[in-house]
Write a protein that binds this DNA or RNA. Sequence first.
DNA 1: AAGGTAGCTGAAATTGTTTTCATGACAATC
DNA 2: GATTGTCATGAAAACAATTTCAGCTACCTT
Lengths: 342, 342
Amino acid sequence: MANIQDVAKLAGVSISTVSRVLNGTARVNNEVKKRVEESMQTLAYQPNPAARSLRTNRSRIIGLLISDIQNPFFMRLIQGVEEEALRHEYSLILCNSNESPQREQQYLDVLYSERVAGAIIVPTREYLGEANLSKFRERNIPIVAVDRRVKDKDVDAVLVDNVRGAQEAVTHLINNGYRRIAAVTGPLTVTTGRDRLEGYRRALKDARIPHNPELERSGTFDAETGRRLTNELLQINPRIDALFLGNNLLTLGALDALHAHNLQVPIDVGLVGYDETFWSALGTLSLTTIIQPAYELGATAALRLFQHLQNPAIQSRQEVVLTPSLIIRSSSLAREPQPVKV
Amino acid sequence: MANIQDVAKLAGVSISTVSRVLNGTARVNNEVKKRVEESMQTLAYQPNPAARSLRTNRSRIIGLLISDIQNPFFMRLIQGVEEEALRHEYSLILCNSNESPQREQQYLDVLYSERVAGAIIVPTREYLGEANLSKFRERNIPIVAVDRRVKDKDVDAVLVDNVRGAQEAVTHLINNGYRRIAAVTGPLTVTTGRDRLEGYRRALKDARIPHNPELERSGTFDAETGRRLTNELLQINPRIDALFLGNNLLTLGALDALHAHNLQVPIDVGLVGYDETFWSALGTLSLTTIIQPAYELGATAALRLFQHLQNPAIQSRQEVVLTPSLIIRSSSLAREPQPVKV
DNA sequence: AAGGTAGCTGAAATTGTTTTCATGACAATC
DNA sequence: GATTGTCATGAAAACAATTTCAGCTACCTT
């Protein structure tokens, strides 16, 4: 494997000059430059990233720490990050915290000690912790939180407006005649759980529907939880007439529970889900859902990270909020529409 | 950030000794060792991976190059690799070729120049090419192909028995009274496409059902293709009575096409899919499918890779073949069972 | 003609580790 | 008592790049 010396020798220059051509850090005579470039070509020279990052204390790798690799939503997000990284000629270290703060911490340590150039994180908790942040800050490694906000100061975030999404979803149910609307949301320790519950409440409030805590359930973002909580809700009398689900996997479990109870969607129970996914419109299934721009979420976070990398001087914290949209299918359309004035 | 010198100074030894303690490459006096370890503790010392891999020409990172990050099947596979990597204290660079050989090549170059310790690849083509392989071989970077076989010599592979899976699926349809069975499979340029078609043919042959090329369609592994090819198959007279699908996304498209034609599964058309996934048993849907051990596929490939890394002397090529299994649900059970003797 | 400057280039230091080679201490062998 | 061997340790080289500093032209200014 050719190294910078070989290139220098072949081109008849010093390694400094080769380095300058490589990085464009200083002017090099055009002819010399050409000769160097030819030498790099013929030797198929590729700079050694280890030597580089040893010297510069920075790699061409960014870390992506997500919370659930099983969730299709995050696959889109990963893809967004990945494509943007490819475009900027960075590689991507993928880490999966599995919603476990311990594992998240473990991976933060890995990313730190690997000296990644930057990190994009779907946090599992409210704070990443000043201990972590100051370590990264000290080494000038930017961090961008994505999908979920953290309370730490100075952490950039790229989010979707969850309050708005949920509010829109539930308002849609109300406008279509549903009144006893229950909600199954994610953990209240993360903004995607809390904000969507908040949106649900606001929609009810705006429509002057009394708030009933019994109709609110929350738990972890998985199908089993969706099934369990939906089962609980279905025990309640009088029966709920609609269900708002806080993410795609919760929806999956809810559908299962409804089917087990022999309840038809939307005739017996209206339904609006969160996250557009493979099975949203599959066969007889036709779910009204909130679409999140998952790909854009990832791509935007990556772009923000690269802004930091290209201009380390940027200090200001930035919060980008993308807008979800409602796609109306039949799972929410069995009652007489009864728009409520707000 | 403390470096090895700081540790050495604090412990009152040379850096060589610290290195020896760190790597266990030679005996160190117990007391000295203890002192060194304490110093590492107090300084929160973490070895610099860049310096390490510069010296050893090997990183603690492995590359995973998959062909479609959107497919839930690969998510499970990724998770298998990721957990095994974590256990061995390796990080994972994730690359997504998107079934494009160009992008695959691009990423192979990235992995090579990043000096990954090893690579796990879901190939998009029949050959990785001797040019690539010899480069990796020269630097002693092991490669393991996963899910799909390549024809190159000396590439380890971890596979699922696709012929067997498909054969089992189609035999099951036959045993349950279906006779005009069509197949929609993936691209014939990859083993997961070709082998499953082969399994389909063998099942028919074993049952002495005449082979009808018109009932075989193949295309890329996505829902749109599944829909299109199923639509084509539904034009044929007399109508097919069952459908075998070559992967999860093809199944998704097929279900859509059947629904659009107002055909009921399994009454009008029996169906067996490939890959167990979120929507296999969702509401009224109840798909008989071939389950692939996706997680094990990834974990096994990673293990094989680490075998190579721990013992670079291993030369022998190994092909591990895992066994798929059939899970019977109602999508294949509307006819009178008519077992065929084989 | 002397001095200053802009533009290129090279030598050498630097980064943090692993690894080779050398050394000294001490025990075992003849 | 001389020689050999083993063990623990340190000094220094090597890895491949970036970066600082200094030097050398060639040209311009006064």
